[in-house]
Simulated scan of single mutants.
Amino acid sequence: MGDHLSGPKCRGLFVKRNRLDGSTELIAAQAFLDEDHGELDSQPANDNNNYTLSRIGKHNVVIVVLPHWEYGLVNAANVARDMIGSFPNLRVGLMVGIGGGAPAKHDIRLGDVVVRYAGYGHGGVYQYDYGKTIQNKAFVPTGFLNKPPTFIMAAAAALNATYRMKGHQLKKAIGSALDRIPRLQHEFRQPNASTDRLYKPKILHTARDDEDCLAACGDDESKLTIRRARSADDDDPVIHYGLVASANQLMKDASRQ
C-alpha cells in the first residue's frame, strides 16, 4: 500500500452520487479495474472514508464514494479533504457520477458521457444556486468555479482530438467488463434505444420516482421530441465537452434547465 501513498503516478477517482445511493457508480468504476490492491494497512483516525485501491493501466488508482444518504457540495468537500490528507501525493482527482439534463442544441442521450470543459467566461462548472436575488429582479449568479489545471485541460484536448479522428473504444470496453462480470449484465448493459424517450419540457412526470416512465407519461408522439436514430458512423456513446451545472439543489424540473 505504500506505493499508493507515495507513488508519483497515483490517480484519485472520486465517485459523487446524484442519487442517495452511490453504489451504482462505485460498481461501475470498480468493473474497469485491472488489479485489486486490497485495503490500506493503516488509515488516519480522522479519515472517515472507505477506499478502493487498485490499478488501471499503468496508474495506481484510489476510489472513494460518499456515505449512504449523503450528497451535496459540503459532503463532497469533506470526502475529498480526507482523501487528500491520506494520499498527499495524488496528482489527479476526477469526480464522476450520473447526471441529468434537458437537451437543447446538443443531442445528448441516455448513456452519453459529459466532460467538464473550461471555456470563455467560465471554468467548466456552473454552480446554478450560487448568487443573489435582488428585489423585483431575477436571480443573478455571482461567480463560478476555477478551471482545472493546465495539464488536465491539455490532456482533455488531446483525447478529444484522438476520439474525433479515430473514435473511442468505450462500447468495447463496457462489453469486456460485462463479460468478465456476467452478473452485472442485467443492470448495467446498455438499454434499448426505444427506452430513451425525450419528453417535451411541458410534460410533467407526476408519478413516483420508482414508477416506469412509459407507464406514467406514455409514448404519444405529441408529448415527445422526435430524434433521428444514430447511424453506424456515429459514436455510441457520444462524448460531449462543455459546461456542467452542479449545486446542492437537486434539479428535476425540465422547464428550469
Rank of each mutant, 00 (worst) to 15 (best):
V115S: 02
I203Y: 01
K172R: 12
I181H: 14
I181M: 10
N146T: 14
D233E: 13
S86T: 11
A118F: 00
A245C: 15
E39V: 06
R91T: 15
S246I: 02
G7I: 05
D210S: 11
D234W: 03
M251A: 13
H186P: 00
Y163P: 01
S42F: 05
D209E: 14
A154H: 10
V125M: 08
A254N: 14
C213I: 11
N146A: 15
V96L: 11
Y130K: 08
R183W: 01
I181R: 15
R91P: 02
N78V: 03
H186A: 08
R256K: 10
L159T: 11
M153Y: 00
P148R: 05
A118V: 07
D41R: 10
A161P: 00
I84A: 06
Q135A: 09
Y126C: 02
Y128A: 08
N248Y: 06
T150F: 02
L94W: 05
N60W: 04
S255L: 09
G111N: 07
A154W: 03
L66P: 00
L20S: 15
A161C: 06
P44G: 03
Y241C: 07
P44W: 01
A216N: 06
D219P: 02
N192C: 01
Y130I: 04
S222H: 12
D220G: 02
T162L: 04
Q135D: 14
K252T: 11
A229S: 15
G143H: 05
C10Q: 12
I226V: 05
H68R: 12
L250G: 05
P103M: 02
I152Q: 03
K105M: 07
A29S: 14
L214W: 04
D82F: 03
K16C: 05
A254C: 14
G72W: 02
D21L: 06
R256G: 02
D41K: 07
G131P: 04
P149D: 14
S42W: 14
G57N: 08
N78Y: 02
P191D: 11
A161R: 13
G22V: 01
D253S: 10
F32Y: 03
E35K: 09
G131V: 02
R227F: 01
S231Y: 01
Y71S: 14
T133E: 13
M95Q: 08
D179H: 10
A229M: 07
A215D: 09
Y163Q: 10
K202F: 03
M83G: 05
S176I: 06
Y117R: 10
P149S: 12
K202S: 13
V92C: 10
A45R: 11
Q257S: 12
A156L: 15
H68T: 08
N46I: 02
H186S: 13
R81Q: 12
G143D: 07
K223R: 08
G121S: 05
E221L: 04
A177E: 13
T133D: 11
V62L: 01
E221W: 00
Y71V: 08
N49G: 01
I27C: 04
K58C: 06
N192H: 13
V125G: 04
G123Y: 01
R91L: 00
A173D: 12
A138L: 03
T206I: 07
L5Y: 00
R183S: 14
A80T: 07
P201V: 08
L250E: 01
A245M: 14
D210V: 09
